[in-house]
Design a protein around this nucleic acid. Structure first.
Lengths: 233, 233
DNA sequence: CCTGATCATTGCGCTGGCGCAAAGAAAAAA
DNA sequence: TTTTTTCTTTGCGCCAGCGCAATGATCAGG
């Protein structure tokens, strides 16, 4: 893959960057590949680099001392991740980034972006926008986890994942495919693979989704939205 | 209360601000008082102002369509809150801010800080630091809610609240008082007042805390930490 | 001091959803 | 192809914690 500076414009933070800045960043970037299951970084590592996913998909997870995981977010192409070290020098990653499929990411030293921020206001704004959006998503998910029942949480999770990493299949209907295992969905909705499996089976019986190994296909998004909003009972 | 510009230095974002900036911000600020239970703003209101709590305590809550609440954070003196509109013009507050006791806050137009950011790099850094810290806290709490049992979650919540809004009592031991109702603790730890009540009663039997109406007193912080870390069994 | 309001406690029953275990299905490796 | 590995499903039992309801404690106001 040969990256052009203008490709970086697909990263929200760099959308309005002048060409020369893009060149500069690209010149400082190292391309790192990761096979499925490999890690870009681990929770607790020094956060000396931030990353931009250029191909594939990844997930950000956090573990408790006992090793149980939760899925904080899924990362799609041209999304930035691991940027904690940009703001706080000497920080460690609070989460682990793992490739969901063969992926590649640009790694740039956090300190470099930190310095660049001082002279480039547009970067500040872009970064804050990212953070703000993420804060809002986390607040919502926190509320959902605290107040909603599993079925609804799974519906909300599936819909969120569909919008973030879903692939719209070519064809008549609004079919959205999500390439995630039951385990991934469970970690993203705060439940167990057993419960996810049971709920998906029930939805399949009702014609809302089609399921397969490491795959969920949404046949009836509207029906899922109804469950997510609790309009079904 | 007569506020001096230098008082604003107690706000983390303004710590390194020059005196003239502080004067400017103070001149743009409106002091708003709120009795216990009153609101500074409601979830869904246009986020045209951001706030700085100058006295009292407040909480940020989010409700789902059914009206169930979760406590996102508690706000102490000299903390900034409701700053979402600074980054995104036209945004609405994603949460409700309610006074826990008679309180007062400075309200400043979001657009004013947004403009100030363009020419004052130190503000950008301060704001991003705040956001980063908050993101990390939310991620942790999300994981806790997803993976930990109630008793542990309540212990983690109590300890967190103690550090955020606890008052260290003058006296021999490490007594920390937290002026919160069972309802508040329940909303902050994602459970019900019944469960909080039962758990606190059990801790009181074990001599870890003393409880009263709208009050929790930590007698043995170390014991609570043990529960929070799961070292007790 | 009384009254009403608010907040907290506790007994009790119940169930959502967890988690084991075993079997099945699909993919990957040999 | 067969074998191995990985992922998924499903039956079953169980219990943590929810939520009602009734009672008790504490506070504010007159």
């Amino acid at each position: 893959m040969q990256l052009q500076p203008a490709d970086l414009r697909r990263v929200s933070v760099f959308r309005e960057a002048p060409e020369e800045d893009l060149r500069l960043f690209l010149s400082k970037a190292i391309l790192r590949a990761a096979e499925e299951g490999e890690y870009f970084f681990l929770q607790g590592d020094p956060a000396d680099f931030f990353y931009i996913l250029v191909s594939g998909r990844a997930k950000l997870t956090q573990s408790n001392p006992a090793g149980q995981q939760v899925n904080l977010r899924t990362i799609n192409e041209w999304q930035m991740f691991g940027a904690i070290g940009v703001v706080r020098s000497g920080a460690v990653y609070p989460a682990t980034a793992q490739a969901l499929e063969p992926s590649a990411a640009l790694a740039i030293e956090s300190a470099f972006l930190r310095d660049a921020l001082k002279t480039r206001p547009y970067l500040n704004f872009g970064l804050m926008n990212l953070m703000t959006a993420y804060i809002q998503e986390m607040q919502e998910r926190y509320r959902e986890l605290a107040t909603e029942r599993v079925e609804r949480r799974i519906a909300l999770t599936i819909l969120r994942l569909a919008s973030q990493i879903g692939v719209r299949l070519p064809g008549e209907d609004a079919l959205i495919e999500i390439p995630l295992s039951r385990q991934d969905v469970a970690e993203a909705s705060g439940t167990t693979i057993f419960t996810v499996s049971r709920v998906l089976a029930e939805w399949e019986r009702r014609g809302l989704v089609e399921t397969g190994r490491e795959r969920v296909l949404i046949r009836n998004p509207h029906g899922l939205v109804q469950i997510a909003e609790g309009l079904n009972q």
